[in-house]
Nucleic acid binder design. Structure first.
Length: 216
DNA sequence: CACCAGGCAAGTA
DNA sequence: TACTTGCATGGT
């Protein structure tokens, strides 16, 4: 493991706020739905969408496969981009039915890098959504990079503004023990830190200095 | 009123 | 490969 402050930052964050209880979902499939719905969208709106969808049908692959996309789109409207997201969800359900006997369990029999490739081949699933699913639904040791994480690294001088996704992911993976539970908490803690202390790049009124200055 | 929120795909050069 | 644009709602 390389020498970086990343492990120390994690220990400080965990000591300050404790376990964040991510991901907020009852099943792996529901987690996958949330991962698509929350793309560039506030989590509150995802909760509205999931509640409306739950009122329409059970949150299982075969139930959604059988639900007309127009109905699905109407249910998830509060989460925004509802045409694109309903298409992504429908295709996910169709693929699970056609190639994985309709269960996430069979999908998750794939080895991690194979599973990542598989998810990335699905419409509407890019690097962050794929890695979120790998970590929070399949419990694989993969670090998720999102807008908060980029901000966190940049403000601590650990990356440039345009450093690639895979480079940032490797930064964490090389600096930390390969532990899904640790990656899970760390990412959730970074999001909490970002939500509570900073809103914009590269600086904001609330946190003119590095993010960690607020809790160290 | 403008801006943002746990991104992605498709088009262009 | 590297940029740009469209997608869409609800909160502040």
């Amino acid at each position: 493991m390389r020498e970086t402050p990343l492990l120390t930052f994690y220990e400080l964050l965990l000591a300050r706020w404790g376990s964040q209880g991510w991901w907020p979902a009852d099943t792996p499939f529901e987690m996958m739905l949330g991962a698509i719905l929350t793309q560039n969208t506030a989590w509150r709106n995802v909760e509205y969408a999931l509640d409306r969808l739950r009122a329409e049908c059970t949150l299982e692959p075969l139930a959604l496969e059988a639900l007309p996309q127009e109905i699905l789109a109407e249910c998830i409207r509060p989460a925004g981009y509802f045409n694109q997201k309903s298409r992504a969800i429908k295709e996910m359900a169709t693929t699970l039915k056609a190639r994985f006997n309709g269960t996430v369990e069979n999908l998750f029999k794939l080895e991690t890098s194979r599973l990542r490739q598989e998810l990335l081949s699905w419409r509407g699933i890019g690097p962050e959504t794929a890695d979120s699913i790998l970590l929070y639904a399949a419990n694989r040791p993969v670090f998720v990079i999102d807008a908060y994480t980029r901000r966190f690294l940049f403000r601590h001088g650990l990356c440039e503004e345009k450093t690639s996704y895979d480079t940032l992911s490797a930064l964490f993976m090389d600096a930390l023990p390969s532990d899904p539970a640790l990656f899970n908490e760390y990412h959730a803690l970074i999001v909490r830190l970002g939500k509570e202390h900073c809103k914009s790049i590269p600086q904001c009124e609330k946190c003119p200095l590095a993010l960690m200055d607020h809790i160290s």
